[in-house]
Nucleic acid binder design. Structure first.
Lengths: 266, 266
DNA sequence: CGCCTTCTTGAGGGTTCTCAAAGTGGGTGG
DNA sequence: CCACCCACTTTGAGAACCCTCAAGAAGGCG
């Protein structure tokens, strides 16, 4: 019945042509630095120290683990390209994704302080990560208190998002939850320079989104359809287009303050 | 009501003999220090610096806010006695409690780095808190990198709990969720020296527990009854008694690893 | 003793889940 | 280049879980 939508041309549209990211593509570390600077002031010396970090790039296919649950690691994973999800696996086999990581996110910054993590990290689509060893990161925090603060603050922003998700899962219905996720990702993408809040690419399948939202894939699909039917958003492949961000915010009861962007992302 | 002495607990790391400084009841700051030492090694100089912190005690009646949502504050709240809940208030009036704080928890440690928080803190029962100004805390982190690390790690432990709650809310039914909460609080209480995992005091009403679990009070009540009927746990007023912790763990699919107690709290 | 908060019980309805199967498009091997 | 397979999306029907509304017990406190 609903005709147009399905995943027609996932790969083609989005590639370089739509995002001709300037001759000077920001390196992964520059993206990470920009992320930190959103919330923490850093001196140029501190910035240089961060940019001087070394790491090795790793590509991971969709549906593969970047970090296995319960693994003890000695590096952190900076997402360079793609989409990663932190997840918790239950005994009954169900999977809950607890956080989404977009390029520029150091998705395992925690592990610098707590190398043995309980969660896993999964590539939701083909994803490139930069592995940065813990040791130099730890040294930075000792040498530069401002960097320690910045890392701490990054963890707090992460916790703030987790906290907001708890209230979404506990007290919102499927429709509001999905709308909230789209709003959040829109702001985060925009703020990373990967699109705008009303038009961005979210390369996750419906089953994966369901794992984020604590729903089944079937119900997520039906919920998504109601939002499309109401004209609140459209999807073309992995492209998400929001027609009226304020309306979607209203459905979601969304307030970007929890993202801890001092500008308020207005 | 303190059941046992200072945190003697499974770890043994924080044995009272290494710090024979108290004849009796641990002060609030000692409890906080013990909490930090569970996860982070500190030199005696660093410990002394923490114990030298000053603060003013405040008592808050049940159902009153200790920190209002969205308030900007210049102090952190160390729970001395009682029970506090971090919460998020939705537009529709529903409330979701995102974290429970027991004595020894510095429930607003985040605010040292991010003074304008989005959440509120509520006294679930009559609660005493010690307000510690941000400034000296911040100075500690600059002067002692190990303390900065300990604070960071404490935030990570908090985030790990949040993360686990997301998977509980998203992928577990009411029965498993409630069982999981009881298991978690049992371990945390035991480990703070406020009881044992099978017998402790949880001074929260059923409506408040429902706000933690993302349920209605009515459904929480029915769920609690099924656990009682099955002999998994008993309550007498606010006292919780678990007959078979392993069985309750099984119902909950509970694994204490996420609490980041290196001993594993086994 | 009476009021208030909390706990408990009942009945009905809505949201979301489970199971099952069909449609759609991309990728791959022949 | 076509046929097939596979991952993903969509649809349907029935059931389970949890919610809402409502009201009756049970305990604490003046």
């Amino acid at each position: 019945m609903r005709v147009t939508s399905p995943p027609s041309s996932p790969a083609g549209i989005l590639s370089q042509e739509s995002k001709p990211r300037m001759t000077n593509q920001p390196t992964a570390l520059e993206l990470f630095l920009a992320r930190l600077r959103l919330r923490s002031p850093l001196s140029s010396q501190e910035e240089d120290a961060i940019l001087a970090l070394k790491g090795s790039e790793v590509k991971t296919d969709a549906h593969r683990d970047i970090v296995r649950p319960g693994q003890t690691i000695d590096f952190a994973c900076l997402v360079v390209d793609g989409l990663a999800g932190r997840f918790d696996q239950l005994a009954n086999g169900h999977r809950q994704i607890t956080a989404l990581h977009i390029p520029g996110d150091m998705c395992d910054l925690h592990s610098v302080a707590v190398p043995h993590t309980g969660w896993g990290i999964e590539a939701l689509t083909k994803t490139t990560t930069l592995r940065v060893a813990h040791a130099p990161l730890r040294e930075l925090t000792i040498q530069f208190p401002a960097i320690a603060f910045a890392f701490w603050r990054d963890t707090i922003a992460d916790a703030s998002i987790l906290s907001k998700w708890i209230s979404a899962l506990g007290r919102r219905g499927a429709r509001a939850r999905l709308a909230h996720l789209i709003c959040e990702m829109g702001i985060r993408m925009e703020q990373t320079g990967l699109g705008t809040r009303t038009h961005f690419r979210l390369p996750a399948t419906q089953a994966q989104l369901a794992d984020v939202l604590g729903l089944t894939a079937v119900h997520l699909n039906r919920t998504l359809q109601t939002l499309r039917r109401d004209g609140a958003l459209f999807t073309e492949g992995f492209e998400v287009k929001v027609s009226d961000f304020n309306r979607l915010s209203g459905i979601a009861d969304f307030d970007p303050q929890y993202l801890l962007l001092e500008s308020g992302a207005k």
